[in-house]
Design a protein around this nucleic acid. Structure first.
Lengths: 216, 216
DNA sequence: CTCCTAATTTAGGTCAACCTAACTTTTATT
DNA sequence: AATAAAAGTTAGGTTGACCTAAATTAGGAG
């Protein structure tokens, strides 16, 4: 299992899990390789029994592939906790270096790291950290984009993408931040949020990448 | 710079530093690749200006190559400190996983790790940890194998090799352990050492892989 | 229901890092 | 100094992961 193949499995999981097939096009976009390269690599991985291909339709992880993907995510998120909690990383820095470190996550290491960090439930960006046995209970969250004016809620999870993370951190948004939606622009217009200390505006696109708890 | 090339530079440094040429044979042994593969790779690295080859004689790092090699060693040793101090690794486990982690050591990460660990001077096996700027003041030590009966000294550094490390740790040898040589076998016979609490015997070969301070 | 477009696959090629086998240079021995 | 052994290099081949270009399939629009 090379770092390369690991990335294919991880992205396949993130894009579809066990729910639905993932197209080669999506894979080629997130992995930034040519579609032909995706076909080729997926064929190898399917021969290894890690995923199943429906030709021209898409592919999906097998239980074996799932196990590997989840352990990568576990490593990634534990490393993020370490980098932010102990080394003073920013959100986006932590994500970047965790992308490298996740490929060095034998269970001997991740299990001990987990203990050292005192078994954190969430990564700094709000994603659930799978347990050592691969178990992972995702919370049911909603998109900020689906809130209405007047709703009050809490930031629970954000998608991990460098520029987006920097943008959020500059705005002062953190996991757990409580806010009230004070206005929602029409036609995918911006959301205005009242935080504890200040009011900020975020684009509709950003609102689609932020998960929040049920509003009250 | 791939992890592969990094390993060539690191081993070249460990085998010869800037002192003397290193033969391809040595390189092929420590890297466990065919001699022909060494020739090929060293050629590439010399084209990149990281080392100089004297055909049929051996090769040596340039200042650029040295810089990379030292930063790898720095990463390796800092990771070892972390693994042992915070994750409860044994000597040999720490060495193994540090071999992987060292290839993920951008200075952003190692410098912060260094600070987190409170700027340790030595790795758990007694090697000096190079500073961020590449500076490294090696202590002058002597081999345990060169001590005479009656000499009293302290363990300062041990070579990092899995089976050897396990052997030492089982014997209760640690960096800083004080001991007195109570007998030296003839013809490369074993050394008998009186530690604080007990007496142990170690082979001549082992005595050649242990560094100690000047006896008093 | 045909046809066009977008997605996918196949074919053929590159590059990095390895290998074995054959050849050359160095060195050590007689 | 001649030559055999050891070390190093060159040549040619393999594998993994990528690429472009060409051929194929799927699915929606008229």
């Amino acid at each position: 299992m090379t770092p390369n193949k690991e990335d294919y499995l991880k992205e396949l999981y993130k894009l579809g899990g066990l729910d639905h097939l993932v197209s080669n096009k999506q894979m080629s976009q997130v992995l930034e390789v040519a579609p032909a390269s995706v076909s080729e690599m997926l064929n190898k991985l399917s021969q290894e029994g890690l995923l199943v291909i429906e030709p021209y339709k898409g592919s999906q992880l097998t239980p074996d592939g799932l196990r590997i993907a989840i352990s990568l995510l576990r490593g990634h998120r534990l490393w993020e906790v370490f980098l932010i909690r102990h080394l003073g990383y920013t959100w986006s820095e932590a994500h970047e270096d965790a992308e490298l470190l996740e490929h060095i996550s034998p269970s001997r290491l991740t299990d001990r790291l987990d203990r050292f960090l005192n078994y954190p439930e969430y990564c700094p960006h709000g994603s659930v950290i799978p347990k050592s046995d691969g178990q992972t209970n995702e919370d049911t969250l909603m998109l900020l984009a689906d809130l209405k004016t007047g709703d009050t809620s809490k930031i629970k999870k954000v998608l991990e993408e460098k520029k987006f993370l920097d943008y959020l951190q500059n705005q002062g948004i953190e996991i757990g931040t409580q806010f009230t939606v004070t206005s929602v622009g029409d036609y995918e217009g911006p959301f205005t949020l009242a935080l504890e200390e200040k009011t900020i505006q975020i684009s509709y696109k950003a609102a689609c990448q932020i998960f929040v708890s049920e509003p009250k």
